[in-house]
Design a protein around this nucleic acid. Structure first.
Lengths: 192, 192
DNA sequence: TGACGTATACTCACTGAGTAGTATACATAA
DNA sequence: TTATGTATACTACTCAGTGAGTATACGTCA
């Protein structure tokens, strides 16, 4: 028998789809309530404001996204450059899906750029820091002179590719970023 | 004697400040009209819709931004890696200004991700293409095996830095991207 | 057992403030 | 006189958020 999904979960699911698909400010609370099949008043029973719901949306994406990156990395055979490039290759695959709209964290940050203290901004910043820190850890075991710098450069290429693919609607930029990331890892290993 | 600024210019100037500072969807047409010191009807006399005004905003930023990058590049003494890194150093300087809110083209693309055919999206994409093409030209004279790939990697680092600095409110990411860009140029030259 | 109290989860109907965009009139300058 | 540019005043609609109330479930005390 199918477990009944709670109203709160349905609201969060609807918020995920709409915020990611249409953008934060483009989506009204009414639209989310309607998509979730509840009244707006019920939505406000579970979340105290739209801002609160935006934050919950990003919190709900934090761990799943990081887990995906880790999975792609770990399941790839080969050397470190191959594993890093594989993340970009998988992202390029995702980007070919018509519903793909870039990185939800980056797009939310762009929309809320005029509200630096917004709770969702903190969630987004923490998410990106976690990814960078994880990459740094993966580089630590190798004889690379500065794993932190290398991790940061990879992060920059990745976030650049997210943005650029969104602008041009061309996943090749993700492939190109993967190639760039591979070069940076190889050169860092060579120098050591 | 100060030339009287036309209503149209004042509207465009107000749109620039508000769209860049607050975001596209966060700013109402009424707010722009008020800031320009004219009535909303006058705004609609000069621009046929808000979308039209958004497009005009990006068009007005296209050449000035490209000119700045070129200026920073040309005025820097030294070798190619120095000139490329200089662009990032100057951007890092800009990013320390409290009014800095990232790249207007990228932020607009993020906000309008659900309207891929929007005229402003085309302006943004063309702007980024022009920058990439210019960089590619600058790399052509050198004995680099693929100036296009190198230019693209630099673009990815730059757009990544725009986004990441916005997320973390930390201009160091632009400096780090400049260091990464220098490395990529140096390694590309070495390989030739 | 059953009457009462209370917490959870929900709905209907509404508010005041904005939203993009427009009908119409008036002024000024060629 | 006619085109250009401006203003007042408006429409029809959407926005985030709320006041007031309801159905159901659970616990506890007589």
């Amino acid at each position: 028998m199918p477990e009944k999904i709670s109203a709160k979960d349905r609201i969060l699911d609807a918020a995920n789809r709409l915020f990611y698909g249409e953008g934060i400010r483009a989506v009204s609370v009414d639209a989310i309530a309607e998509k979730a099949g509840i009244t707006k008043r019920t939505l406000y029973y579970h979340f105290k404001s739209k801002d609160d719901l935006i934050e919950a949306y990003l919190v709900s994406r934090d761990q799943p996204n990081l887990a995906l990156y880790r999975k792609w990395f770990e399941e790839t055979e080969g050397e470190l450059p191959d594993k890093v490039e594989a993340i970009f290759a998988e992202l390029a695959r995702s980007a070919r899906h018509p519903k793909w709209k870039g990185c939800g964290f980056l797009r939310t940050a762009a929309e809320l750029a005029n509200m630096p203290g917004h709770p969702a901004m903190k969630v987004g910043a923490a998410h990106k820091k976690k990814f960078e820190a994880w990459l740094g850890e993966e580089f630590k075991d190798l004889e690379v002179q500065s794993p932190e710098d290398l991790a940061r450069h990879i992060v920059l290429l990745m976030d650049g590719a997210f943005s650029t693919v969104l602008v041009h609607r061309d996943p090749d930029y993700l492939t190109s970023a993967g190639q760039g990331a591979r070069l940076m890892v190889e050169n860092a290993m060579k120098r050591a």
